Structure formats: C-alpha cells, structure tokens
Computed example of a mutant assay.
Amino acid sequence: MLRTIDLRGRVLSPAEFLAVVPRADAARDEALATAARIVDDVARRGEEALREQAERFDRVSDHAIAVPAAHLDDALAELDPGIRSALDEAIRRVRAASAAQIPAPSVTELGPGARVTQRWQPVRRVGLYVPGGKAVYPSSVVMNVVPAQVAGVREVALASPPQAEFGGRVHPVILAAAKLLGVTEVYAMGGAGAIGAFAFGVSSLGLDPVDVVTGPGKHFVASAKRAVAGRV
C-alpha cells in the first residue's frame, strides 16, 4: 500500500528531509545480497555458473558465451544503413567530446630541483556492460567503448545478455556497434553474473579479470558492482 507523506507548510533541512522520507533500504540490501551470491557463484564455478544463470534468467542454453568473430561480422553486414549512419555520427561526436575531457600533463616548479609532474594514464583493461532486456541500447556500446579508447585503454571486453529471440546470440545491433568500434572481445552474458565474470575472470572462456567495470544496468547489476568494489 502506498503511503502519503504531507510536507506542505514545512521547511526542512536536508537532514530532516532525508529522515522524514523513507529509503528503500530493505530492497537495496536484498538486491545486494542476491547479487553477491550470484557473483560468488561465478567466482567459484565460472562458466558452469554463467550457463545456469543464462538458462534461468535469459531462457538460453548451449550458446556461445565467448562471441565468435563471425557473429560480429554477420551483425555488421546485416545492419540497417540508417542505423549504421546514426551510430557513425554518434561515435564521431562522443569521440570528440571524450577527447576534450582528457587532462593535459602539467609540471609545477616549486623551487630549485623541486618539481611535481602530473600525468594521466589509462587503466590496462576494462569490462563494459551493455544491457539487453526489454530494449536495445547500442548507445551504451558507444558511450562505454569510445571514452575507453580515447583514454588509451589497451584491452576492452564487452558483455551483453544472450537473447533467446536470436538463438542465444547477443542482440545483433549491439554486436554491430561493437564491430564498428573494433571491439573483438565480446561475451554473451548478462546481469550480476557478467559483472562477477569481469571481476574474477573465467579461464575456460579466455576471459581475464579487468581493472574497471562500467556500464548501466538494473539494480542487480548496480548491486553486483558494489559487491566487487575493491577488486575492480
């Protein structure tokens, strides 16, 4: 049942306002506990856990988790020309905006022989998550991959849920966007399990652990990121 909180005529400080308006602590804690169990399962059992999760959450089995290059080639070859044009323009714009965000190196002279040099360096390897539930978000591919490439990240791995509609493949528009950007390491895995796989690696898939995980997702994905905080 919905609860009505009437704040008319009251002037509250930020602390008082937060005290009056209830937070969804129970739901958040439950999501974190569930996500942590899923992540731990992947850390312990690797590919076996990912396949069980795919069957349970995505209704997919016996699919190629490590996406073959041919799937990427097929997706780009079959991409609607209008969508490709839109993606090309989005990539151009995000690349320009991302390049403008890279801080320039700086040197501060504090005194004779006293110098502070600041350099910004990319992480070595990133795992990028792209949702694939009720909607398709090739924009998430662009917004994840392009900034990493502009920053100079050498290894980019991308994950998106397998789609029952496409025989367990990642959605073809997601694959096409990855191919456009030159991403060759793609995995058909979703949800909290994908975050766990990025954090701990899955040797049977050739998936090495990453340094940073980014990308949008529902509350279980967000909770999984909290569960692996400190490891990535």
Score class of each variant (00 low, 15 high):
L18F: 06
D29V: 15
R124W: 00
V21Y: 00
E185C: 06
L110I: 14
R95Y: 09
P103M: 11
I174Q: 00
F198Q: 03
D73T: 09
L76R: 14
A77H: 04
V145D: 01
I38T: 14
E89N: 12
R44W: 01
A222G: 13
A224E: 02
P122V: 14
G182H: 08
E185H: 05
F17G: 03
G191A: 12
D25H: 13
A19S: 13
L12E: 06
K179Y: 00
L7H: 07
S13M: 00
S223D: 10
G168L: 14
V221L: 06
A178D: 02
G113S: 05
D88Q: 13
V183D: 03
L158K: 10
L207K: 02
Q101A: 15
A104K: 14
L87E: 01
D25C: 11
A159T: 07
I91D: 06
G206L: 14
G82I: 05
S98D: 00
L87W: 07
T34M: 11
A176T: 01
Q149R: 15
V21S: 02
A199Q: 10
A176V: 08
E78Q: 14
G182M: 12
S61N: 02
A99V: 10
G167V: 11
A192W: 01
A33G: 09
D73C: 09
V145T: 08
R51L: 13
V21A: 04
V42F: 02
R226W: 09
I38H: 00
A135K: 13
A96C: 08
V136N: 04
K225H: 04
G152F: 03
G113H: 11
R8M: 08
A192G: 01
F198K: 03
A26R: 15
R125L: 14
V232P: 05
G182R: 10
L18Q: 12
D41E: 15
S61A: 13
A43N: 07
L158W: 05
S204M: 13
G182Q: 12
R124Y: 04
Q163L: 06
A15S: 00
E185G: 07
G152A: 01
G217R: 11
R23M: 10
P122D: 12
R3T: 15
V156M: 08
G190N: 10
P122G: 10
R154C: 11
E48A: 15
A188L: 11
G230E: 13
V186I: 12
A114E: 12
S98L: 06
H63S: 11
A54W: 09
V42W: 03
G132N: 05
P81V: 09
A159H: 02
Y187N: 09
L32H: 09
G133T: 00
G168N: 04
I102L: 15
V153K: 01
R92I: 10
V145C: 07
L76I: 11
A197G: 05
G201P: 05
A86D: 12
A157M: 13
A54S: 14
G193M: 11
V107N: 08
D211P: 03
V130Q: 03
R169N: 10
V21F: 00
R51W: 05
A24W: 04
P105E: 10
P216G: 05
T214V: 15
R84T: 04
E89P: 03
R37V: 01
D62A: 09
G132I: 08
R45M: 07
A104W: 01
V94Q: 06
V228M: 02
N144T: 09
R124T: 13
A148Y: 02
A54F: 07
G215L: 03
V210Q: 03
A19Y: 02
A157F: 10
